[in-house]
């Protein structure tokens, strides 16, 4: 008897890592971006497997939809997809990159997977009870608007500043 969610997780994880490797190594910026979109879609699948369906939908809409279209739009606008040259650095930099990635990945994996961090985990049952109670969206929305109301408002301010700053930076003459 094969464990179907785990099998799906392995498939999504392999696709996500493959997309990441493709993004880092592909020479064409458009291909690189499409590899990143593949990674984002498989991350959305993993969110569904972790019972975060609403986050998965937002991942597809916001990341794979809006942000990646913005990147694609800028690549097309600057006409970078047609005359690409090798922008991967020299051999020494590649070695340095692998060393840096190894160190950071090692620190992260040893920190995130230390024993005891996942002990005492009743959170999953809590989330599931909340989803049964107020639905998938409500389970995220109630804490967002109750406990995190002030950060939420600050977020709107951040987006306003970012929008004004983007217009100001990209405009020819202010």
């Amino acid at each position: 008897m094969i464990d179907i969610p785990f099998f799906l997780f392995v498939v999504f994880a392999v696709v996500a890592i493959g997309g990441g490797i493709g993004m880092v190594s592909s020479r064409n910026p458009v291909a690189s971006l499409l590899f990143l979109v593949v990674t984002f879609f498989s991350l959305a699948g993993i969110y569904v497997l972790l019972n975060a369906q609403f986050i998965a939908a937002v991942q597809v809409i916001v990341y794979a939809g809006a942000i990646m279209v913005l990147f694609l739009f800028v690549i097309m606008l600057l006409n970078l997809g047609s005359d690409y040259h090798a922008d991967i650095r020299r051999f020494g930099w590649i070695v340095a990159g692998f060393v840096a990635a190894g160190i950071i990945g090692g620190i992260l994996s040893s920190g995130l997977t230390q024993p005891g961090l996942l002990a005492g985990g009743g959170g999953g049952a809590l989330v599931d009870a909340s989803v049964r109670d107020v639905g998938v969206v409500g389970a995220v929305a109630f804490p967002l608007f109750r406990d995190f109301a002030v950060p939420f408002e600050v977020t709107s301010l951040l987006l306003l500043v970012a929008a004004i700053g983007a217009v100001l930076l990209a405009k020819r003459r202010v």
Partner: peptide, 8 residues
């Protein structure tokens, strides 16, 4: 997986 993606 998160650590691997961050390292990438």
């Amino acid at each position: 997986l998160s650590a691997v993606l961050f390292a990438l």
